[in-house]
Design a protein around this nucleic acid. Structure first.
Lengths: 118, 118
DNA sequence: GAAGTTGTTATAGAAGAACTATAACACTAG
DNA sequence: CTAGTGTTATAGTTCTTCTATAACAACTTC
């Protein structure tokens, strides 16, 4: 469980943390039942605020990737495999978007709009 | 060219304006070469600031849907058809995401992350 | 060429949302 | 009970959103 972030990268820290964990889940480095390090551990080792880490964890919970409970920590949930597929589809979409010259922000806005319609 | 916005909807006004135009382009109500009403016209008819409309137009430009030039206005560009396909793919992805319980914001974050990796 | 239209840029302000930080709380496991 | 976990509350700061005004530069039309 190695997390890499770049405080000077512009992207929010919690996004970077969440992305790092998503990537590990996608490659199989993290599978169902695996436990994430506690938010306080991560916060200290990355020299970041506790809430920043928790926000990343809560994003992953909203996506259904992890389950969280007090006293027990954050654990990779049963939907991890399905989400890896969804992520693959997202990357395929991103590749097509890039061919059309549509950047990450524009694509995200377009997808959000599409998701909110239905 | 009918634009509908809801100031009490929570979503940014420029997002609503952009979404409305995207929808018209997707259904074929707007096709390549069609000219959008001037930003000043829209601003007045919606009782909204000029810059709010321009931000919507600039989002659509970033997506490649419209081309803008001073004195000439905003025109639906040649990539409109391709973008309608991309939008269809985005909606398919959104449908799958919703089946998994992944909401619009979470999906947008996931797609943005996927697009930034590549 | 002159006039009018268009998007573009600059500056400023106000209201609200989001982010950061600190502290206390409530649930779980040993 | 104790130690560790996520959760919630609170406050201050920063960022986003929308507005407003003004000037500018490119294009169209006459």
């Amino acid at each position: 469980m190695l997390l890499r972030i770049d405080p000077a990268a512009g992207a929010p820290l919690y996004d970077q943390i969440a992305a790092s964990i998503r990537a590990d889940a996608a490659t199989g480095a993290l599978v169902e039942g695996d436990r994430l390090p506690s938010a306080r551990e991560v916060a200290e080792s990355l020299d970041v605020n506790l809430h920043t880490v928790l926000k990343a964890y809560q994003m992953l919970r909203d996506e259904g990737l992890v389950e969280m409970r007090r006293g027990r920590g954050a654990v990779i949930g049963s939907a991890a495999a399905s989400l890896a597929d969804l992520r693959a589809d997202a990357q395929a979409l991103a590749a097509r978007a890039r061919e059309l010259g549509v950047g990450p922000e524009a694509l995200a806005a377009l997808v959000r709009a599409a998701a909110q319609e239905s």
